[in-house]
Design a protein around this nucleic acid. Structure first.
Lengths: 171, 171
DNA sequence: TTGACATAATTAGGAGCCTAACTATAATGT
DNA sequence: ACATTATAGTTAGGCTCCTAATTATGTCAA
């Protein structure tokens, strides 16, 4: 299964929604509109994030790994844990780590006690990369969200929590 | 560029955010939290939608095409227009149409006036497929969003509109 | 001790998307 | 009229992700 977001550029107009609601009485027009709008905005944010990261030769997958490593006290973790936290399979993680290691941003350190295990360690170059990327990302994100005051942000968090509760009903 | 959404399962705790904010003073903690939460919920919704559609042998790409065709008066359109509306390239659209045509859900009709053009037409089987899928989708979506009253939905729409305005700042 | 099972990482092959190049057809300007 | 440009669709090859199988190592119980 693919983690591909809403591509649809052409959201339904109220007229189209009404037309569909006539044929399909189960349609809940405001639910549909909110749902599609949420997916649309999130997709555009995700694309914008990728565009921002790609200026630094990163994409989300590799970037999250660097961030997760930086969160660790010892700046290191295992492929399995990283895969679980990033939300990709271990197979995918192998490839991501390969690519980061080639760029010198992380390093594989083999465990002598348990020879199945490998530790992935953030290198100095990796930390330096984050020290360039993160301020840029944070500055842009601050600008992006400046239209929302703290109260709107709290409202949004609350609403998102409610929607999240409903996700299982959709599956 | 890939339309791949936030995979990160492990959102930062307030402590982690504070730690990062110390190192990177540009960090706007509530902006970051709202942003990641939005991406997280949207991704889960998108995955749930895919799971729902895959029960009917569809994924979002093919599904949108059927819906867009049903919106049309004559139940048909061209690959170019569909590609633009769905938000994929024409090359991708060729593949999606191939797959839908193989399943008998759409039909290629060649234009005799302009021999470069092909019309893509929703077949009766395609309409029948939608008549099964859409009620199921609408029923699930209604359930999914039932935790939100109309006022929350309006608030959400409003907030999403504000965020959308900020997207260009992120790029 | 050793056979069965569990765990860690990788490899192999497939799906859906992309860009770029290509083929065919139509429109346009001199 | 005919070379140039624009448009429509497809093909070729690459990327990142996936699932499933594979290799290697560790654990545990009869």
């Amino acid at each position: 299964m693919y983690l591909i977001m809403l591509q649809l550029r052409d959201l339904p107009t109220p007229e189209v929604l009404e037309k569909f609601a006539e044929r399909y009485p189960d349609a809940d027009v405001t639910a549909i509109a909110s749902f599609l709008h949420l997916l649309r905005v999130a997709t555009d944010l995700s694309l914008a994030l990728d565009a921002c990261l790609s200026k630094h030769d990163l994409l989300q997958g590799r970037w999250w790994i660097l961030i997760l490593l930086m969160r660790e006290e010892q700046l290191c973790s295992t492929p399995s844990l990283l895969a679980e936290k990033v939300g990709v399979t271990r197979a995918t993680m192998t490839g991501l780590i390969d690519s980061l290691e080639q760029s010198g941003l992380v390093q594989r350190v083999f465990d002598k006690a348990d020879r199945r295990r490998v530790m992935i360690k953030l290198t100095e170059a990796g930390q330096a990369k984050l020290d360039v990327v993160m301020p840029d990302y944070y500055r842009r994100l601050r600008q992006c969200m400046q239209g929302l005051n703290e109260s709107s942000r709290a409202q949004l968090q609350n609403i998102l929590g409610l929607i999240h509760l409903g996700v299982p009903a959709l599956i």
